[in-house]
């Protein structure tokens, strides 16, 4: 927790800790309510809920229909040893995850940029005692949307293509929760890191929709890369998350199938959360000092 005032000191008594914790929670709820209010003004969310996921996933499934053939197994050399034979499941699982992740990057990653653009960033900062509640509040609001979006996406996918799932429920739930935490962590980190970049949204778009979606191998196995690029791809947490999700949702395997990757993602997620909150404090202070807080 960090207050926007530089004179803020950590509480010394238990009651002071409790008071600050309650304030933090109330600040977060204020931001969540504000976010839902803003969100409700843009009615396209309902349309996005109904057709957005389909429009994101369908082109790749149609590409699979064209090159593999509907109902035919994946037989290429790049799939040897992967045990994945159903291209629909292979594509749909990570693409659902990418789709949901993109909403996080849009909501949280673009949060500060959007406030700057609309001239309300300073107002939002002075509304709360703890600035990081901007992230937590927005996350609370986004989780409501994410839940509806996830249900509608999965329902749509099952109605449309009915992928052959073989789910290890416990492992899948753990991996999905880890994925959500990892995405939020990355969104916090990027949003904080790029406060002083006037077109920060662009940098985030390149990072999330280009670099991550290419290197993490959402739609193809990363063995297609040369060795050095595979090493870079394996440094990206989402590469492991997609693999874990495929293993737990399509193969019925547990986390132990990729235990090393799982531990790596947990550590990366913790790092990104800490980094995001620390950088928010540092970069806000820098932006204030330079007078560039409201620049866009």
């Amino acid at each position: 927790m960090q207050a926007h005032s530089s004179s803020y000191k950590l509480p010394e008594t238990a009651s002071a800790w409790l008071r600050d914790a309650i304030t933090y929670w109330l600040d977060s709820l204020t931001i969540a309510k504000y976010s839902i209010f803003i969100f409700s003004r843009y009615r396209s969310w309902l349309l996005n809920l109904m057709i957005g996921p389909f429009l994101m996933i369908a082109p790749f499934v149609f590409l699979g229909d064209t090159l593999v053939g509907e109902g035919k197994p994946l037989t290429g050399s790049y799939f040897t040893g992967t045990e994945f034979t159903d291209y629909i499941g292979f594509l749909v699982v990570p693409l659902i995850a990418v789709n949901l992740s993109n909403t996080v990057f849009t909501w949280i990653g673009g949060l500060i940029r959007q406030e700057q653009l609309m001239g309300t960033f300073e107002r939002a900062l002075v509304t709360t005692q703890f600035t990081s509640t901007m992230f937590i509040g927005k996350t609370i609001a986004h989780l409501l949307y994410l839940a509806i979006f996830a249900v509608s996406t999965v329902a749509l996918v099952f109605l449309w293509v009915s992928p052959e799932f073989d789910v290890n429920l416990t492992a899948a739930v753990i991996v999905i929760i880890l994925h959500v935490l990892c995405v939020y962590g990355m969104a916090f980190a990027m949003s904080s890191l790029l406060i002083r970049v006037t077109d920060s949204w662009t940098v985030q778009t390149v990072m999330t929709r280009a670099v991550l979606s290419i290197l993490a191998g959402a739609t193809f196995p990363i063995v297609i890369f040369p060795g050095w690029l595979q090493a870079i791809a394996k440094a990206i947490p989402f590469t492991w998350i997609f693999e874990l999700e495929r293993q737990t949702l399509l193969q019925g395997n547990g986390i132990d199938a990729e235990l090393g990757g799982f531990i790596y993602v947990v550590l990366a997620t913790i790092f990104m959360w800490i980094f995001g909150f620390v950088m928010l404090r540092v970069e806000l202070a820098n932006a204030k000092r330079r007078g560039s807080l409201g620049n866009f």
């Binding site: 790749f60 590409l63 593999v68 799939f79 594509l91 739609t219 193809f220 297609i224």
Partner: peptide, 10 residues
């Protein structure tokens, strides 16, 4: 990603 997916599939 489209080219790589197509390359892997075919």
């Amino acid at each position: 990603p489209i080219i790589l997916a197509a390359w892997a599939f075919s």
